[in-house]
Design a protein around this nucleic acid. Sequence first.
DNA 1: GTCTATAACGAGATAGAC
DNA 2: GTCTATCTCGTTATAGAC
Lengths: 231, 231
Amino acid sequence: MSTAQGARARARIEVTAAIKDAARRQLAEEGAAKLSLRAVARELGMVSSALYRYFPSRDDLLTALIIDAYDSLGEAAEAAHAAAPAADPVRRWTAVCEAVRAWALGHPHEYALIYGSPVPGYSAPQTTVPAAARVGLLLIGIVRDAHDSSGLTELPLPAELRPEAERLAADLAPDLPPEAAAALVAAWAELFGLVGFELFGQFNRVVEDREAFFRHAVTRLATGVGLTAGP
Amino acid sequence: MSTAQGARARARIEVTAAIKDAARRQLAEEGAAKLSLRAVARELGMVSSALYRYFPSRDDLLTALIIDAYDSLGEAAEAAHAAAPAADPVRRWTAVCEAVRAWALGHPHEYALIYGSPVPGYSAPQTTVPAAARVGLLLIGIVRDAHDSSGLTELPLPAELRPEAERLAADLAPDLPPEAAAALVAAWAELFGLVGFELFGQFNRVVEDREAFFRHAVTRLATGVGLTAGP
DNA sequence: GTCTATAACGAGATAGAC
DNA sequence: GTCTATCTCGTTATAGAC
């Protein structure tokens, strides 16, 4: 009994993975807007109605691809973070940022899926939130650690932003000063601005040595949120 | 003769504008990937082959929409820049940034067209470059003016980035110090990271008071490139 | 119970004959 | 420029294999 169930479960996992792989291939060639269940089924030698045993709708397949992409990016970022020197917050920060960039360059279509234009007619459900939050949580952790070991520079905070900054801090990192929380969220968005501009061609004929440029830019982002180099 | 030719030219301009308007509507509903000459023709009560008198291909229509979008954004940014106090570089900087954000919020689909995911199978020709450069040139002008009136703070520049920074300065603003040119390009990309995150939903359930958050973030971008508030 | 296949729907795109 | 025949699509109902 358990073997039969195990075999069935294994088969199900394999077919699910094959569907997602074919869908990712289609994503690269046609874009998310044109992702078609029928084309995926055709590529797998299945019939389109069979796919509905695995994904109840085209949008659910899209959602699975989005979560996978966020998780793949999050895993890459977390691995880079774990390998960085624990005592140096700036090195940890730049390690995460460079992992994000490397993942994006290696998975441009999945990056476009999660950080590019929204897919017309599709709205991401709340189930994508935990996976989407992983990189942000890593960055929060780095700043929190620096704050705990008194390694966080103080930042200015205009009165206009104080309520929002306090709300952000309460939501994301209650132990952080509000101005650090606000700076952190801005740096998070700015990081993806740098990555997106490179990936989507805005740096063509502008920035040549992108590696060096990016490293310097994210180092400045790190100091912008109050991090200072470790020993 | 000249009246006839004038009327014909006028009609041609009108039809061209109507085509682009219909295409923009389709852009909003189906996305750039699904922009189809036939659908545009249908909406206008024309036959698809008639459109080829105005745009030789779907890609040329896309290119026209892209240039229009860049120009519309550039115009909005330039108007905001012209209305800002000339003596205060930070105010001029934030005025441009806020105009970019306001334009993006008002034209989300056109923003997605020019700063979102690339359209599969389409590659923007060099003819889009001048329009695409307008916002960047504005920002360069602000920093150059500040530098000319000795109002630019000095920035650090690691040896690793020096060659690239010098290349950037030579290309974009020969009168600026290399470190300012590099910081400027980074801030330019980061600005669109902030705008894109808000527009594409990444700030949902994260940032509430987006106006205040954005104003503070771009003010910090301004100081990050070395600008200081005027009198 | 779990899956795949057939057939069909309503809608839209497309290619080619006229 | 028009019409038609043939494609695509997401999705569902149904029937049968394992």
